[in-house]
Design a protein around this nucleic acid. Structure first.
Lengths: 136, 136
DNA sequence: TATTGTTATACTCTATAACTATA
DNA sequence: TATAGTTATAGAGTATAACAATA
């Protein structure tokens, strides 16, 4: 049974396959893929407002609210008003958030490796580079 | 401003970028990306039931109903009971569906080429091959 | 009993608009 | 005026369960 070779089909199903791998990998950490992405950005160089985080991920600011709400409820991140501009919420990892991010990062690395397992090592590197060239 | 290098992020946004290109390309044909995909499968070797089409695309049979409804309303496909198994709907292109698919295919080819325009020709071929290896 | 199509339903993700507080 | 966060709402897209017709 022949499968479509269209880029749209291939990209969609690549995404699906990766999600099927990262989902279970993140479950022990109480995170889904979107929450992990937010956590990883917050764990990077900061300080970042909710809007900053959303911009890097392509997530609308209205969607960021619920996302940060969830992470705050799990005590993984904290909000505090920006000292120089009190309209902004600076979002930061808690100690627990830092530990969770560390473990979750390893789990996602493993899931990505499994996703790429069908490729030679050089092919996998190339694939990631080409994808980055297309998106970034 | 550094962007995430995660596969999940890259694949999601690659998908978004492609959709932004194929959407307008298909608009003159009155189709969106999902409808085009269905039309293309129906236009392939058949005969195919709704379930067959859904299986190739990873679309649930309950979602196929509305999709085929829409294409039938536009007179692009027709349903008829399978002669040997009347539980099945054989879906086929109408003459108008065949013409629409032809034009839409060229439009999508052009959109994909634009999506890949940032890559050398060899890189683009390689990218598609690697993606196929990961999904197929 | 199992399969195909159908309908209804719910859930997630996303997009938009309006409101508030701050600048 | 414009910006950041918030809330409410509506629209896709998908998944599930139940039902009818047929095998």
């Amino acid at each position: 049974m022949s499968r479509p070779r269209r880029l749209g089909y291939l990209l969609k199903h690549a995404n699906l396959r990766l999600t099927e791998l990262t989902g279970p990998a993140l479950e022990p950490y109480g995170l889904d893929g979107r929450e992990f992405a937010v956590l990883a950005v917050i764990g990077g160089p900061g300080p970042l407002s909710q809007l900053d985080v959303g911009r890097r991920l392509g997530v609308d600011r209205s969607s960021m609210v619920g996302l940060v709400d969830g992470l705050e409820r799990k005590r993984l991140v904290g909000r505090r008003p920006h000292p120089d501009d009190r309209r902004k919420n600076v979002v930061e990892l808690t100690e627990r958030g830092r530990e969770t991010l560390e473990g979750a990062t390893r789990a996602v690395d493993a899931a990505e490796a499994e996703f790429l397992a069908g490729l030679e090592e050089g092919e996998a590197r190339l694939f990631r580079a080409l994808l980055g060239k297309l998106v970034g």
